[in-house]
């Protein structure tokens, strides 16, 4: 019997998770474990439940049965405990969701100052550092609507990073972007992955998935159909459904 060290505990663990939207069974007995520092990409056709799965991890979607664990703690159901746990998980949305009434800089400092009680000056310095890092430092004093989609999404990533999350969730981060802006966002994400951030990414960017991920999860009809290494998955998928899907997206 070995002593479990902290690094043996998975960062994210789903055990037999089920979810229904009315009569629709959107997550069917999902079990998934993500190690610390691992980058997992979830792909699948639309309506396969991949976004829902991603959103259950910080309980933006509730589940009907099963368990979700984050860094050795069971996901709380409500209240301050839930808010506290969420503050440790960064999330990036398809539609950026920057707060429209605040400057980019205020977007960055809101959570650190109000949730973590970081002194204002410190939070601002950290925010500027992160904005520089994702390449939008010069946009800090503008409001979100003045930025391009790509800039907004990079700022949104920086906003999540400002909380020093233990893991990051990406829910189709490039789907709402014009093609010429996808690259700049993926570059930021690639760099994050290199630095060892634990990431769960729902995406349609297959090249990115192949290049950056440690593991690919293929979902269809609410179930995990295939789990594989990116190399194996994209060159010879084990399942028929994955092969069909890969076929269908190749133009």
């Amino acid at each position: 019997m070995s002593i479990q060290t902290a690094s043996d505990v998975p960062m994210i663990e789903l055990k037999n998770v089920n979810k229904h939207f009315g009569s629709l069974h959107v997550l069917k007995d999902i079990s998934l474990s993500v190690k610390k520092g691992e980058v997992v990409v979830i792909i699948g056709p639309s309506g396969s439940g991949k976004s829902t799965l991603c959103r259950t991890i910080n309980r933006l979607e509730t589940i009907d049965s099963g368990e979700i664990w984050f860094d050795g703690a069971k996901l709380p159901e409500e209240g301050r405990e839930l808010a506290n746990l969420r503050s440790q998980i960064g999330m990036v949305f398809q539609s950026f969701n920057l707060f429209a009434h605040m400057s980019v800089l205020d977007n960055m400092t809101l959570a650190p100052t109000s949730v973590r009680r970081v002194p204002k000056a410190e939070a601002r310095a950290e925010a500027m550092r992160l904005l520089e890092r994702v390449g939008v430092g010069d946009q800090a004093h503008k409001v979100p609507a003045e930025l391009s989609g790509g800039q907004q999404q990079r700022a949104a990533i920086a906003r999540a990073l400002a909380m020093h999350p233990k893991a990051m969730l990406f829910d189709e981060p490039t789907s709402a972007l014009d093609p010429e802006m996808i690259g700049e966002v993926l570059n930021v994400m690639t760099e994050l992955a290199r630095e060892g951030m634990t990431m769960v990414i729902v995406t349609h960017e297959m090249n990115f998935a192949r290049r950056v991920s440690d593991r690919v999860i293929f979902m269809d009809g609410g179930s995990i159909v295939e789990e594989n290494t990116p190399e194996a998955f994209f060159s010879h998928p084990r399942t028929r459904r994955a092969a069909d899907f890969l076929q269908s997206i190749q133009k």
Binding site: R59, T62, P76, E77, E78, G79, L82
Partner: peptide, 8 residues
């Protein structure tokens, strides 16, 4: 509002 937990 989120879906309420038992306490809520």
């Amino acid at each position: 509002y989120e879906q309420p937990g038992p306490r809520t």
